[in-house]
Write a protein that binds this DNA or RNA. Structure first.
Lengths: 210, 210
DNA sequence: TTCTATATCACATGATAAGGGTATTGCACG
DNA sequence: CGTGCAATACCCTTATCATGTGATATAGAA
């Protein structure tokens, strides 16, 4: 049976959620709290499989609580409960380690469904948040064509450099002379408009050239 | 009116999709193709607002097509059509720049809905893919506590180093002597277990220490 | 108060990198 | 059949970095 802890500062909502879950017979509410100050101890003691966490808790916010939980437990599933879904706090919570979220106004109809999804390894979230997230991850492949016209060999050497290899090591790894490595590096610096290893590596890693 | 291009190698499905969309009266199908070899030209010429792209096209895959489209147009909305949703190709497509996807078996009921969502700035996707994506972005804040016990000053210096600054520049920026920078750097190397700038920067950037 | 951690500075030596040339080979393209 | 480019290689000089050893000042913990 799925063990659940609920954090929700609205006492009546907390009670509703508890009854709703208990009535299904499939979930055991092992804890229900109005704040999450002792969240770490509670998770450690009660060992839930799932946590319903209100986003807007007094004192310690739900997002902060998620971060704390993830320090000690990476397995427990966490669903955020929130009133609005059009703000960055939801993104932040997902980054912090939440597995999904549910609008409070949809709680009664969709709660059980969301729990099933999360326990099955899914992540219930609204399309608009999903969009924010994918926009976020698409940025790296920058549109401003990070095209410095590096040749294959140059990219190879830049890659090696970015992994922390010295000129000597690169020469050995690629079976070419130290001086050849130097020559390539010079060209790379010209093309990237930098003057040292670190600048090149910094640029390469930041712009995902490697 | 929303202008749409459809890519789908199954001719009868292509036709169904086309009629389905035309019948709503809200969409104009300005192009319908069995392959996406000329995707760039077609997008440039037809200037659609939305593209329905089959994942499994012969010759040039749907994912490849998305990449090409994103080279020339970052605004057009792209919905992937796929048979399975439990594979990495979907993730790959989202990374490449797709805005959402739809299982073919759900096309008839959910297509219009998915289009509305995408045009409204959402990203329709299944919970399992959403989960993959958020798992992906949570990794950086590694659980294996990237705790090298760096002091504040050391972090500051490592940060400067990661931005491509030389010892001299760091000394100037922090108003300390070159030798002091050296001393800090030595400690940083010891703590990170590295032997050179690049290794340190590489480690710092990869493990998000900065 | 004494110990410890942090931050600061100095000097010295050998290693590595930066920046300037120059040159050969092979391959593709009009 | 040159021309241009990529990849290879060598030389030289100067600048920067790696590393060791030692020292001072200061704030907080034992």
């Amino acid at each position: 049976m799925t063990k659940i802890i609920i954090y929700e500062d609205n006492a009546s909502l907390l009670e509703s959620l508890e009854s709703l879950l208990s009535l299904t017979g499939r979930y055991e509410v092992v804890g229900a709290f109005l704040h999450c100050q002792q969240v770490v101890e509670q998770v450690n003691t009660l060992m839930p499989n799932l946590i319903l966490m209100d986003m807007d808790l007094p004192e310690v916010s739900g997002v902060e609580a998620v971060k704390r939980i993830r320090q000690i437990d990476t397995m427990v599933q966490i669903i955020m409960l929130t009133i609005f879904d059009d703000n960055e706090h939801v993104m932040e919570a997902m980054y912090a380690g939440a597995n999904g979220y549910l609008l409070k106004k949809h709680a009664s109809e969709k709660l059980v469904n969301a729990i099933e999804e999360v326990m099955a390894g899914g992540a219930p979230m609204s399309p608009s948040i999903a969009r924010m997230i994918i926009n976020n991850m698409q940025q790296p492949q920058s549109i401003v064509a990070n095209n410095y016209q590096l040749t294959l060999r140059e990219k190879e050497i830049l890659q090696q450099l970015s992994q922390g290899n010295s000129f000597k090591m690169i020469a050995a790894a690629l079976s070419i002379s130290l001086d050849t490595v130097r020559t390539h590096i010079k060209r790379i610096y010209e093309k990237l408009q930098v003057r040292s290893q670190i600048e090149a590596v910094s640029k390469a890693l930041n712009e995902k050239l490697v």
